[in-house]
């Protein structure tokens, strides 16, 4: 399959162009504590991103949905397609957990009889993708994925299968992760300050192979590639969730780090170079290696 559109919301702001500018500057954004209660610095999406005009129809939505929608709309680029043949896949590790805890908080604070149906609705994993479907007026399949090891890579692989199977003409596939106080608390208790929690949303408009570079997912790495972007993840208490240091400074550590790196790979494929970050990548395929324990997935961009 080929990628025909990319959308990014991250610590550098909204838009793929912002990623390019950020990486070219070779000056990472400054991590900051999420609140007075949790001291661990994190790389959050800047507050001004949530005031984007495209988000005004969903101003009551939560952060998770807003990040997802903004990235998806950038990747979608207002294209026209048969609405019934547009698929959406949204992958995440922890989903809209800040909203889940908000619902739990309200439950403890006010009791069941006063709990908010709006907050409950937004705490469901399916909410963000539903908003995307409504925004782009699509009526094809929508799938939400929540796994801890390779959520994005598996989603990308399924998008390829949907396109090959003929289920869809276009698949908008992406991954979103958010930070919350509870999340940061758990991270700092488990791993101290060994990594910087990040958040963001990364979407890709994928279509069937044609003229142009392809993207595919492999369960083993290519023997040869001119550029390898590493997204090393480990679960449990072993090594925390650690990405290659040069990237983590720009995205924060993300279990969906492969999605951020696919956006970077798309910039490299377009000829952009980030000498200060990953050295001089030359022509040829880029492989994004995500590891977790002894398993790995490789996204090959060529």
């Amino acid at each position: 399959m080929i990628v025909t559109g990319v959308g990014v919301v991250g610590a550098g702001g909204a838009g793929l162009e912002n990623v390019k500018v950020l990486l070219q500057s070779a000056t990472p954004p400054q991590p900051k504590p999420i609140s007075a209660r949790e001291a661990l610095p994190v790389l959050q999406v800047p507050a001004e991103v949530f005031k984007h005009p495209l988000l005004s129809p969903v101003r009551r939505a939560d952060r998770f949905s807003k990040m997802s929608l903004l990235a998806a709309l950038e990747a979608w680029q207002g294209r026209t397609a048969d609405p019934a043949r547009v698929g959406i896949i949204l992958a995440s590790a922890c989903g809209p957990h800040a909203t889940v805890f908000k619902f739990v908080n309200d439950l403890l604070e006010f009791g069941e009889s006063q709990s908010s149906p709006t907050v409950f609705s937004q705490s469901v994993h399916a909410a963000a993708a539903s908003m995307i479907a409504t925004a782009i007026k699509s009526h094809g399949p929508v799938l939400n994925v929540a796994d801890l090891r390779f959520p994005f890579e598996t989603a990308l692989e399924l998008a390829d299968a949907w396109l090959k199977e003929g289920r869809c003409d276009v698949v908008l596939v992406g991954a979103t992760e958010e930070c919350s106080e509870v999340y940061v608390h758990a991270v700092s208790r488990l791993w101290g300050d060994r990594f910087i929690p990040g958040e963001g949303a990364f979407f890709f408009c994928c279509e069937r192979e044609g003229k142009g570079p392809g993207v595919r997912v492999q369960h083993m790495p290519l023997a040869r590639a001119t550029c390898t972007l590493e997204n090393n993840l480990s679960l449990g208490n072993v090594a925390g969730c650690v990405q290659n240091q040069s990237w983590v400074n720009y995205s924060g550590s993300l279990r969906i780090g492969g999605a951020f790196l696919l956006a970077v790979a798309e910039l490299l494929r377009r000829g952009e170079r980030f000498e200060g970050v990953c050295g001089g990548a030359s022509e040829g395929p880029v492989q994004i290696v995500s590891r977790c324990g002894d398993a790995q997935r490789v996204i090959v961009v060529e």
Partner: peptide
């Protein structure tokens, strides 16, 4: 392959 689907 492994996937957890969370479509409510």
């Amino acid at each position: 392959p492994v996937m957890t689907v969370v479509n409510a």
